[in-house]
Design a protein around this nucleic acid. Structure first.
Length: 870
RNA sequence: GGAGGCAUAGCUCAGCUGGUCAGAGUGCUUGCUUGACAUGCAAGAAGUCCCCAGUUCAAGUCUGGGUGUCUCCACCA
């Protein structure tokens, strides 16, 4: 009755299946079903983004979990959405406008935002479509966007609330400034890299003419903003200078020599120039000593009017000119090569300029405290656990968070300035006028993108409205993300959840690694390495891609993209496809997938294997050991089901009669159960095959997850393992002796367990080249190959093929190996401390092993004797 | 300067709470058009589980040290 094509061809059905799922509404959970909710919120991809391998991994893992939970009967919600990605998107739009010869300022804020929304319209849906191709079972009816009305409301509410509680403040602080993006960025957005630079040694002459102080700098242009020179108060070399002044070369400004502990006497000359406006440490020194702050740079990294003759020069041009001048005037005493770490903007890689400016900040300490506690108390668990250390390390040393950005694309800060009295009104609604009656204008700045993503687990569920979704689905269950993003996002969601909802946002953070390219490099746009997941899907199928990212995955560690693994996934899909095809070709339209009343030995064996599989896989997925789970169902389908069970069962299947009927039922039962277990991992092929099964209604994705049933665990499964062992041994020998498959021979089996071998005679006929199986207590056959196993002696008459000498050698080797085993085990068992201290289970297992080996030894010895006789 | 990961077959990697753990895929050798699949089947070769100590009846598995390698955080002018 099979209508399946001969080969697996995912393109023929993946899109169709996905449409079927969405049309049926399976992805959208019901809040009134009485089921227990299970929720995952997606890490929202940027609207500038295209699906890359990292997304493929991240979303495959989430889909595996949510599909499993859905089948297990939870009201499973996977809530999708996208991130407006303020700085990244704005950069792209600015870039695009540049091609038209336009700047932001040319078009103005309103027009710029129109362009940005158009961008979102055009590209925001692209990544969503790509997630759909991957097979993600997100509830698209609940799709959110960080800049949509609801999320914006949440952002405003949190901002106003934090402001009112004094946790958001505005102040002149030193921040990281990107001269290319022309905005402040947070500490987390700076990336450090080693760069070659110079160490310029400069003499600062003392104002009173008593010589000079020598110091070194890597950024000489900042001297334009120097307002002091500092030494360590305990440094005997310089104690005498404290309180005196130096003349700043070139600038000719007189600045004080101050004492501060910050100065390291061991480093450099022990004298430091202090530029409070352009160095974070100097800024704090300046604060302690009430030094003036001279900002010498414009927003685009040029020297401003405070730089005198250097005004208008780019910071690097200014650096060169100043070095030149210093040299000319004799202040420069030495130039050293110096390799040091330089901070760059994480979006555009421009070297960041520390700069004092007026920004909005979130006071972190009070927020971080409970967030640290929640993880310490185990309310929130990181998997693997070591990442909680990363989290603590950051949270315990956290500095205030600079949240204002000089960008247009984002949530505009709901603060209103009065030009008359200088007062600031922070409000959810646009106020008409200032308290003083003056006109108000809204703050020009927008908020850090991560301010809105920090609210994601509840803003997407409707907060600040008290919606049914919020009540039902919050707190969410597991958050799946890469370790890269713990600081940016995970930590901020935790304190935001605790602060605004008074509840943790999720109880588990499942951390995964990066997908690297085939030679282990990080994937990056500049390298252009790694392949496009969409290409992979088109060529191999989404299921093969999902297989690739999941198989062999170990929680928290990086994986490599591997074309061999993608192919392995495709081959596995093909194998499954064909096994289903085989089953469908051999069952009837009215065959039911059920366990028949009468079971043969191999039936009991596969039922045992199958039930153990259910238990193990369910446990694996519960513990987020998703790679292990896939490995198990893979082994079961390919090795247990296809290579052994199907092959064994063929004769019975074709014999007709009742035996055939029960095989058909059981084949269908195991197949449909296996499809279910595999479904979370490879949803498309399992659905397509499920739909082909006779008498099937509905979708596999809402079918109940298989349940372990101890009733179908049989001791006799071990007997069948012995049969398998015997088959393998025979195949091995036949192969070694070059006996062609076509050449059949009678198989004589000497055993105390004749019943097992009698029952399994057909197995040997089918799989081990036996023409028939004769069991008995003892045989005397001349010219036979003798194969000893644990519970039998197998004899195959092979006539002239048998080389007595060779056979004796083979058996002697086996005897020696077996003797070694026996010695080892009995050694263990005669060790008194082993007997005294090892658990009984282990001891019994060893005893059994010994008994088995001894039986085998007896069979080997008999074999040797017989071989020599003949 | 701090913190952490990794080191297991030629290659890419699994191995949960110490005891059927020495595994998978791929590659290699050999033999097969066995009525689902040659995108397949069968058999085989191949590993001091990085090194040295320690804990234990028992150590790829736990502890300490070493070597190699990768990453994160901080950033000293």
């Amino acid at each position: 009755m099979s209508q399946l094509e001969k080969n697996y061809s995912p393109r023929d059905f993946e899109d169709r299946i996905y449409k079927y799922w969405t049309d049926s509404g399976f992805f959208a959970p019901d809040t009134d079903s009485g089921k227990i909710p299970y929720t995952i919120v997606i890490p929202p991809p940027n609207i500038t983004g295209q699906l890359h391998m990292g997304h493929a991994l991240n979303n495959t893992l989430q889909d595996i979990i949510i599909r499993t939970k859905r089948m297990q009967g939870y009201a499973a919600l996977w809530l999708p959405g996208t991130d407006h990605a303020s700085i990244a998107t704005e950069a792209k739009i600015v870039e695009a406008m540049k091609k038209e010869g336009l700047t932001k300022e040319d078009v103005g804020r309103e027009n710029f935002l129109e362009r940005a929304w158009a961008w979102n319209e055009k590209y925001g849906s692209r990544i969503v479509e790509q997630l759909k191709k991957l097979g993600c079972s997100c509830d698209w009816s609940r799709l959110r966007f960080t800049l949509d009305e609801g999320c914006s409301k949440a952002v405003d509410k949190v901002f106003v609330d934090l402001y009112e509680k004094g946790l958001v403040y505005r102040g002149e602080r030193i921040i990281n400034w990107c001269p290319y993006c022309r905005t402040s960025i947070s500490d987390a957005e700076v990336e450090y890299g080693e760069k070659d630079g110079h160490f310029w040694h400069i003499n600062y002459p003392l104002a009173d003419g008593g010589g000079h102080l020598s110091l070194a700098t890597t950024r000489p242009e900042t001297m334009l903003g120097d307002t002091a020179v500092a030494v360590n108060p305990n440094d005997d070399r310089y104690k005498q200078y404290i309180g005196r002044t130096v003349i700043l070369p070139i600038v000719n400004r007189e600045i004080p020599i101050i004492a501060d502990d910050y100065v390291d006497t061991e480093f450099g000359t022990g004298v430091v120039k202090i530029t409070p406006a352009h160095d974070p440490n100097d800024f704090f020194v300046g604060q302690r000593h009430n030094l003036p702050v001279i900002n010498i740079m414009t927003e685009d990294g040029r020297i401003n009017q405070n730089g005198g003759e250097f005004e208008g020069l780019d910071r690097y041009e200014a650096r060169d000119r100043i070095v030149e001048l210093l040299k000319e005037e004799g202040f420069l005493t030495k130039t050293e090569e110096h390799r040091h770490n330089v901070g760059e903007c994480y979006r555009c890689s421009t070297v960041v300029e520390p700069r004092v400016s007026l920004q909005w900040f979130v006071k972190m300490e009070p927020l971080a405290k409970p967030a640290i506690q929640a993880v310490k108390d185990g309310e929130i668990k990181f998997i693997p656990d070591r990442y909680s250390k990363t989290y603590f390390n950051w949270m315990e040393n956290i500095k205030d968070w600079c949240i204002s950005r000089q960008l247009w694309w984002g949530h505009r800060i709901p603060a209103y300035h009065c030009d008359d009295c200088g007062d600031i009104t922070v409000s959810l609604t646009t106020p008409d006028a200032c308290k003083c009656g003056g006109l108000l204008r809204q703050d020009e700045d927008t908020l850090d993108t991560w301010f809105s993503s920090a609210l994601w687990p509840f803003s997407t569920l409707g907060w600040p409205e008290n919606t049914r979704d919020l009540e039902y689905f919050y707190p969410t269950n597991v958050l799946v993300t890469a370790y890269e993003i713990i600081f940016f996002w995970v930590a901020r969601m935790i304190f935001s959840g605790l602060y605004n909802m008074n509840k943790i946002p999720f109880d588990t953070v499942l951390i995964h690694g990066l997908v690297r390219d085939e030679i282990g490099r990080k994937m990056s746009k500049s390298l252009g390495n790694g392949s496009d997941p969409i290409d992979v899907i088109n060529n191999y199928g989404a299921d093969a891609l999902r297989f690739m990212v999941t198989i062999g995955l170990s929680p928290g560690s990086d994986t490599r993209e591997n074309s061999e693994k993608i192919n392995a996934g495709r081959l596995f899909a093909n194998k499954l496809w064909n096994s289903a095809r085989f089953v469908l070709m051999n069952v009837e339209q009215d065959t039911k997938p059920e366990i028949p009343c009468t079971l043969t030995l191999e039936d009991r064996w596969i039922l045992t294997k199958y039930n153990n599989l259910i238990a193990e896989m369910t446990a694996n997925i519960d513990k987020y050991e998703l790679g292990l789970g896939l490995q198990k169902i893979y082994d079961f389908i390919w090795d247990v089901f296809c290579d052994w069970y199907i092959e064994i069962v063929k004769p019975r299947l074709w014999s007709g009669g009742e035996g055939a009927d029960s095989v058909k039922s059981l084949l269908l039962y195991i197949l449909s159960g296996s499809l279910k277990l595999l479904h979370p991992y490879m949803p498309y092929i399992t659905e397509e095959l499920w739909q082909s099964l006779p008498g099937r209604e509905g979708s596999i994705m809402v079918s109940p997850w298989p349940e372990y049933n101890a009733q179908y665990i049989y001791d006799s499964a071990a007997d069948f393992e012995n049969v398998i062992e015997a088959v393998r041994a025979i195949r091995n020998i036949r192969n070694e002796m070059n006996i062609p498959v076509s050449k059949k021979a009678v198989l004589y089996v000497e055993t105390k367990q004749r019943q097992i071998f009698d029952e399994c005679a057909s197995v040997f006929v089918k799989l081990a080249g036996a023409s028939e199986v004769v069991t008995g207590d003892s045989f005397d056959i001349s010219g036979a190959v003798i194969i000893p196993t644990a519970n039998a002696r197998l004899l195959i008459p092979a006539g002239e093929l048998v080389d007595t000498k060779k056979e004796t050698e083979r058996l002697t080797k086996e005897r020696d190996a077996c003797q070694k085993d026996i010695d080892f085990i009995s050694g263990k068992l005669s060790n008194q401390s082993f007997i005294a201290k090892a658990p009984e289970k282990i001891i019994n297992a060893e005893k059994e092993k010994l008994a088995k080996a001894q039986e085998r030894m007896a069979n080997i010895m008999l074999g040797i004797a017989d071989t020599i006789d003949s």
